[in-house]
């Protein structure tokens, strides 16, 4: 069985954040919720400065702190190596969120239907059928996924549950790459079966030195980085997005 993972080539990443938007459209995540986050960093002092980028999807850790702490087994590991959330089971305690050292979890602080980007209930959109409060909802997300048939795909499903990157489990089922990796204009996100030595990510890992984020935490991420260095305390975030949920 394939065990998926991602290799991110930092020497290619432009920090354009197209992956973030691709994710948002594919997974219908509500406002302020970024399953994939691309850091833009600056280091050094003028004129010796450096700019770098770091995409941060969910690490889908093999030793995932979030899975360990989930009191109800909503957050779980699949046999394919994915770390998923069963939003039919999540009770919204956000323990996964505080346990995760990568900050990848997104709680639905309000009803996602009321947290869409625009007021799609405008009367001028009368002819457009809304699903989950939006006109461009992805119908695949409501389907049960994987061998267990659990509801793990998509975001903005309901109020009071935690959601996060699923590596687009619903696309994987169709044999498609995750939306971020499929779209990356410069091929910086390389996804595939890490157990298969011939898969593109496995080949990349053989070719280039690599690291994982917060290796010292023992989380065993399934996301690897090549072509760059991990962020340090000297990395200053620039151009942070507006990740806000308001009443």
């Amino acid at each position: 069985m394939a065990r998926y993972g991602m290799v991110i080539d930092l020497s290619r990443c432009h920090g354009c954040r197209a992956c973030m938007v691709a994710c948002k459209v594919e997974n219908n995540t509500p406002k302020g919720s970024f399953w994939n986050y691309v850091f833009r960093f600056e280091e050094g002092v003028f004129p010796e400065t450096r700019v770098s980028f770091l995409p941060r999807p969910c690490m889908h850790c093999d030793n995932a702190p979030c899975v360990k702490v989930c009191p109800v087994g909503s957050r779980h590991k699949t046999l394919e190596g994915l770390t998923l959330t069963d939003w039919d089971r999540c009770i919204g305690c956000r323990y996964c969120e505080v346990a995760c050292p990568y900050g990848v979890n997104c709680f639905n602080w309000k009803d996602p239907k009321k947290n869409r980007y625009l007021d799609w209930s405008d009367p001028s959109l009368e002819g457009v059928e809304l699903s989950h409060g939006m006109p461009y909802a992805n119908p695949d997300l409501d389907l049960p996924q994987g061998s267990q048939g659990r509801h793990t795909a998509g975001g903005g499903r309901m109020k009071g549950v935690v959601e996060k990157c699923t590596f687009c489990v619903h696309r994987l089922e169709k044999g498609l790459l995750p939306a971020c990796a499929a779209n990356c204009p410069v091929g910086a996100l390389v996804f595939g079966d890490l157990d298969d030595p011939e898969s593109p990510p496995s080949q990349l890992l053989r070719e280039k030195p690599h690291f994982r984020l917060l290796e010292g935490e023992g989380t065993e991420p399934r996301v690897y980085y090549v072509g760059g260095a991990p962020p340090t305390t000297a990395s200053r975030q620039i151009e942070a997005v507006k990740a806000r949920v308001e009443r």
């Binding site: 302020g32 986050y37 990568y102 979890n105 997104c106 709680f107 009803d111 009071g160 949920v245 009443r247």
Partner: peptide
């Protein structure tokens, strides 16, 4: 009725909050 958006809590990470 509104969700926990009425609290001061927010997501840890890009949202820059405290989940607890």
């Amino acid at each position: 009725s509104e969700g926990e958006v009425v609290t001061g809590m927010r997501d840890i990470g890009p949202m820059g909050g405290a989940a607890w």
